[in-house]
Design a protein around this nucleic acid. Structure first.
Lengths: 115, 115
DNA sequence: TTCCTGTTCCTTGCATAACAAGGAACATGG
DNA sequence: CCATGTTCCTTGTTATGCAAGGAACAGGAA
């Protein structure tokens, strides 16, 4: 729930990229899925700027389809560059997780000083 | 190495808190240990503002000891509030990791739409 | 004294992303 | 022509990482 917003930096983008891998989604579906995965506070105020950023960066293929009583829905899926960015995130996440495991696996008074 | 700085937000603080649990360290030792755990680019420009923030927040007990050719070394260890903050970080990290696992464990075209 | 060196400490400014809040656009129906 | 509901987007605030640069203390050389 009340996660510190700072901890989400970079992570939300990686997750959205993952959701769009191999399927088209529009904003409402993305929000719904993110919440369903545990990011319960995920909101449009976060999503739209992120989508624009990634779109300008060439990470998406975009298609619009008319909607019943609204502007046309904007469907996103990953371009080659988007898949590349997703892969980079996965790698960095692996690295980060390992580093944290390194820090937290140390017994509290252990040093292992090399000097 | 060249990790996206955004991914580190919040994480570095949690790690520094963990390093100070049960032992006194001064800045140089903290930098050294963080780098040794894989945060190879961790620098004083990151550390000092963080330490000041946490100090003002009451997370530390601090002691100074004279140093050979420098201002006295400032040793940090966790106060009760610091341990509390560390515990909160651990909980939020667990949550975050689980959420990411939720996102990434979904088969690419699976929906599970409830509608 | 004065200057230099090395270690430790701290400050200032920039970049980025999350998030809140609010607003604009499109279609339908009264 | 206005109300409603859905989708889209903008603006401003905040927090943290990080680079760059600087100040303070001690010792030694000149």
């Amino acid at each position: 729930m009340g996660t510190d917003a700072q901890l989400n930096k970079g992570v939300l983008e990686g997750c959205v990229l993952r959701l769009l891998k191999g399927q088209k989604l529009f904003s409402g579906e993305i929000v719904e899925k993110m919440r369903g995965c545990g990011f319960t506070d995920f909101s449009e105020g976060t999503l739209y700027p992120m989508l624009l950023r990634l779109e300008r960066d060439g990470c998406f293929e975009i298609s619009r389809t008319p909607s019943l009583n609204s502007p046309p829905k904007k469907y996103y899926t990953l371009s080659a560059k988007g898949r590349q960015k997703l892969a980079a995130f996965e790698e960095q996440w692996r690295e980060l997780s390992q580093n944290i495991r390194n820090v937290f696996s140390k017994p509290e008074d252990d040093h292992a000083e090399q000097e």
